[in-house]
Simulated scan of single mutants.
Amino acid sequence: MLFKILHYLAFSVAIGGGVASMILGIRASKNADAAPHLRGAQRAIGTGAILAIGLLWITGLAMWIGSYGASMALGGGFHVKLAAATLLTVLSAYVFVRGKNAAKGGTPLPPKTARLIGATTLSLAVVAVSAAVVTFSG
């Protein structure tokens, strides 16, 4: 039960952080004076979101192993969830690392790319949670 509660809380932080980060990124791209402050907030929120994604993997794997013995025979919805969660993790990690590098003087993501990745990760989060509900709801 504890893993499930932590899993839900981590999902809330991850998706909420992703949405908040997208909003800050849009605002920063439209206001050069506020951009440094908004980018700092975006990095802090991104750090929380990436840690929450890590917690999602830890709790999800623990529940999967504990409840299903690591069985891959949970149906297509489970595989869709895994694929969406994996791609979401890869994209989020990429944006996180790029953001840390940009903060140290590296090149930030171009706004169009950032918007595309933001929309993609949000869509993947919706797919992952939908597939999980389909898979694990009796």
Results as ranks from 00 to 15, higher is better:
27 R>K: 15
27 R>S: 06
27 R>I: 04
28 A>V: 03
30 K>N: 11
30 K>G: 05
31 N>Q: 10
31 N>Y: 08
32 A>Y: 05
33 D>M: 07
34 A>W: 09
35 A>H: 01
35 A>P: 01
37 H>T: 09
38 L>I: 00
39 R>Y: 03
39 R>C: 02
42 Q>N: 10
43 R>T: 02
45 I>Y: 08
47 T>R: 13
50 I>G: 00
50 I>Q: 02
51 L>Q: 00
52 A>E: 01
52 A>C: 06
53 I>V: 15
53 I>H: 05
54 G>F: 07
54 G>D: 01
54 G>Y: 06
55 L>E: 11
56 L>E: 11
57 W>Q: 09
58 I>R: 03
60 G>Y: 10
61 L>W: 12
61 L>D: 11
61 L>A: 13
63 M>F: 09
65 I>F: 14
67 S>G: 13
68 Y>G: 00
69 G>K: 06
70 A>R: 12
71 S>A: 10
72 M>G: 14
72 M>A: 12
73 A>E: 15
74 L>G: 13
75 G>T: 10
75 G>D: 13
76 G>D: 13
78 F>Q: 05
78 F>R: 09
78 F>G: 05
80 V>A: 11
80 V>D: 10
80 V>Y: 03
81 K>L: 05
84 A>Q: 04
85 A>P: 01
87 L>F: 10
87 L>A: 15
88 L>T: 02
88 L>C: 08
89 T>E: 01
90 V>L: 14
90 V>N: 04
91 L>N: 11
92 S>Y: 05
92 S>N: 08
92 S>K: 01
92 S>G: 08
94 Y>V: 11
96 F>S: 04
97 V>A: 13
98 R>I: 04
98 R>F: 00
98 R>H: 08
99 G>S: 13
100 K>A: 14
100 K>H: 14
100 K>C: 04
101 N>P: 00
102 A>Y: 04
102 A>R: 06
104 K>M: 07
105 G>K: 05
106 G>H: 05
106 G>I: 07
106 G>W: 08
107 T>S: 13
108 P>K: 00
108 P>I: 00
108 P>S: 00
109 L>F: 01
111 P>L: 03
112 K>T: 11
112 K>I: 03
114 A>Q: 13
114 A>R: 15
114 A>F: 10
114 A>L: 07
115 R>S: 08
115 R>N: 09
